[in-house]
Amino acid sequence: MKNLYLLDDAIISPLGFSTKENIQAIREGKSGLQLQQKPGITENPFPAGIIDDVKLNQAFLEFGNTEKFTKLEKMVILAVKQVLDKNKNLDLKETNLIIATTKGNINLLKEPGDFPENRLELSEVGKVIANFFGFTQTPIIVSNACISGGLGLAVARRLGNSGKIKNAIVVGADLASDFVISGFNSFQALSTKTCKPFAKDRDGINLGEAAGAILVSLNKPETSENISLIGDASANDANHISGPSRTGEGLYKSIQKALKEASISAEKIDFLSAHGTATIFNDEMESIAFYRSGLENTPLHSLKAYYGHTLGASGLIESIVTKHSMLNNELFTSKNFGELGVSKPLNIIQKNEQKEMSYALKTASGFGGCNLALVFKKQKE
Rank of each mutant, 00 (worst) to 15 (best):
M1L: 02
Y5L: 02
Y5M: 05
D9Y: 06
A10D: 01
A10E: 05
I11H: 03
I12P: 02
I12Q: 01
S13C: 12
L15M: 06
L15C: 08
G16P: 05
F17G: 01
I23W: 02
A25C: 11
E28Y: 00
E28A: 13
L35F: 15
P39Q: 13
P39H: 13
D53V: 13
K55V: 05
L56H: 07
N57Q: 14
Q58P: 00
E62V: 04
F63D: 10
F69W: 10
F69T: 03
E73S: 12
M75C: 14
V76W: 06
V76E: 07
L78F: 13
A79T: 04
V80L: 05
K86G: 01
N87M: 06
K88S: 15
D91I: 00
T95I: 01
L97P: 06
A100D: 08
N105F: 09
I106Y: 02
E111F: 02
L120Q: 13
L122T: 12
G126F: 12
G126R: 05
G126N: 11
F132D: 06
V142H: 09
V142E: 09
S143G: 12
C146T: 06
L159P: 00
G160C: 11
S162E: 15
I165S: 04
K166C: 00
N167Y: 06
V170K: 03
G172T: 07
L175M: 15
A176E: 02
V180T: 11
V180E: 07
S182I: 12
S182K: 13
F187G: 01
L190F: 11
T194N: 15
K200I: 08
L207D: 05
L207C: 11
L207M: 13
G212P: 05
G212N: 08
I214A: 01
I214Y: 04
L218Y: 07
P221H: 12
E225C: 08
S228G: 09
L229T: 03
I230M: 01
A233Y: 00
A238Y: 08
I241W: 03
S245P: 07
S245F: 11
S245M: 09
T247D: 14
G250C: 09
K253I: 08
K253N: 12
S254Y: 08
I255T: 04
A258W: 09
E261W: 01
E261G: 02
A262R: 04
S263A: 13
E267I: 04
K268L: 09
I269K: 06
S273C: 12
S273L: 05
H275I: 05
A278P: 02
I280T: 14
N282A: 09
E284I: 00
S287H: 09
L295R: 12
S302Q: 14
Y307V: 05
H309T: 13
G312I: 07
A313W: 02
I317T: 10
I317Q: 14
E318H: 14
S319Q: 05
T322K: 00
H324T: 06
S325K: 06
S325Y: 03
M326I: 15
L327R: 04
L327A: 02
L331E: 11
F332H: 14
T333P: 01
T333F: 12
S334A: 09
K335T: 05
N336F: 06
L340F: 07
G341R: 04
S343K: 10
K344W: 10
E353Y: 03
E356N: 14
L361Y: 03
L361H: 01
K362I: 11
S365D: 06
S365F: 03
G368N: 10
N371H: 11
A373T: 08
A373I: 04
F376K: 01
K380C: 09
